[in-house]
Design a protein around this nucleic acid. Structure first.
Lengths: 228, 228
DNA sequence: AAAGGTACGATTGTATACAATAATACGAGA
DNA sequence: TCTCGTATTATTGTATACAATCGTACCTTT
């Protein structure tokens, strides 16, 4: 259950609204716009070759994600995301990924367990070969499996949201060779804990996994876009 | 900082879109619609006396909150909220309120601390007098102060979202006399831990506070709307 | 010259018209 | 009778027209 909607993710990428939404989110997160910069519906629309309607719908979604602030009858202003925001997200995710691992231990299905094992095994291979792109995808997938395995629509929804939120940053991070291998080793440990039905351990490992990911990111220098 | 936008909350209540959004959310959460029931733009629009445009914008927001699922070119279907969802939210909130208390301990301002003390003091009075409505409001406010005091835009945003999400349920819960007093006692303990700069303790107490709130709610019987 | 008001322009809010898509029903052919 | 294709209809996607609101510049008044 809750898995036939995977094809279109949280918000569809093919309608004009979806495209505008993703484009604007990407631009805001990548620092294209100044903080507090005003976004005008017609200007954005002309830039992307669409009318105001899809732009407005995208604005409403961005507002709910906290990326822009809409003042009624006045305008939409970008809120952006600071270095501290990224840190906070990782701290929050650390807790939630832990909870997710705990629940996943209790509810994971045989199929999901099998896919996890395959994932870790494959990642080991790609890490050796230096296939960073595949490694990043497997990393994403590992977490997605766990999100689905935790058997909580709410937690899954939340974690996927955060995951997508910091995806840009993470992509850069995983491009670091050592972290790529290290991350997969941690995945393996989490997997072992889940297989051993040791929920406490799985939670702790998942907590640490996030903290490590964050610290590695800081060590390697945050993406320039977040240096504000 | 981060407080002059309080007047209009997360999404404004006075535009047509805002009204539609709040109405639909309320209706979905209160169980007016069946699970998987289709929401048609024109029907909703006619029912509320507005055109499709504000309805569509509200739909897009509800989708992002996970309350409906929009299948492109097909329709919008309510996802609703189950008894398990409520439980999961409380578990998630337990962790996040703990984190919030920890951070609040480190960052709370003198003004915020003072308002917290006043809040607890006043609540004690209203609890004795049996003024449940005021007690509920003070309870909400206590948490809001802590959210603001934690000095994290991200965490504050997230907790306020969850808070609003379960507000309907909570209102009923606090109407229980014993819980009203007990809840305020717990607030006082959290406040003491914050004043003593004991972040560890504040976190643990806030964790427990949420769990207690949930268990009390279950004991008193969940709102009928969530019995699915 | 300063203060206040008014009119104009720019921008968002809402409604509606039109296009595209999907579901359904119906009929022709086997 | 069953299957496939087509036409019809309902519904959403998008564009645009019109209304309401806000900001600003200019003008009037003192």
């Amino acid at each position: 259950m809750g898995s036939y909607d995977v094809k279109q993710e949280v918000t569809d990428k093919y309608s004009l609204r979806g495209r505008v939404f993703h484009k604007l989110r990407e631009d805001i997160l990548s620092g294209k716009y100044e903080d507090h910069e005003e976004l005008k519906e017609v200007a954005i629309g002309e830039e992307l070759g669409v009318s105001r309607t899809p732009v407005r719908e995208a604005f409403r979604q961005l507002e709910l994600e906290g990326l822009i602030q809409i003042i009624p009858n006045k305008g939409a202003y970008v809120t952006g995301i600071t270095q501290k925001d990224v840190k906070d997200i990782y701290m929050i995710r650390s807790l939630l990924e832990g909870l997710c691992a705990r629940w996943a231990t209790e509810h994971i299905s045989d199929e999901q367990l099998e896919e996890m094992e395959e994932n870790v095994y494959l990642a080991k291979f790609h890490a050796q070969k230096g296939h960073w792109e595949q490694l990043a995808q497997l990393d994403n997938r590992f977490h997605d499996i766990m999100y689905e395995a935790c058997n909580s629509k709410m937690l899954e929804h939340q974690l996927k949201e955060y995951h997508e939120y910091v995806l840009r940053v993470r992509k850069k991070t995983l491009a670091d060779e050592k972290r790529g291998s290290k991350s997969n080793e941690e995945h393996e440990q989490i997997l072992e804990a889940i297989k051993a039905k040791n929920a406490e351990l799985a939670e702790k490992l998942a907590n640490k996994h996030m903290i490590n990911a964050y610290e590695n990111m800081v060590k390697n220098g945050l993406n320039e876009a977040y240096k504000n």
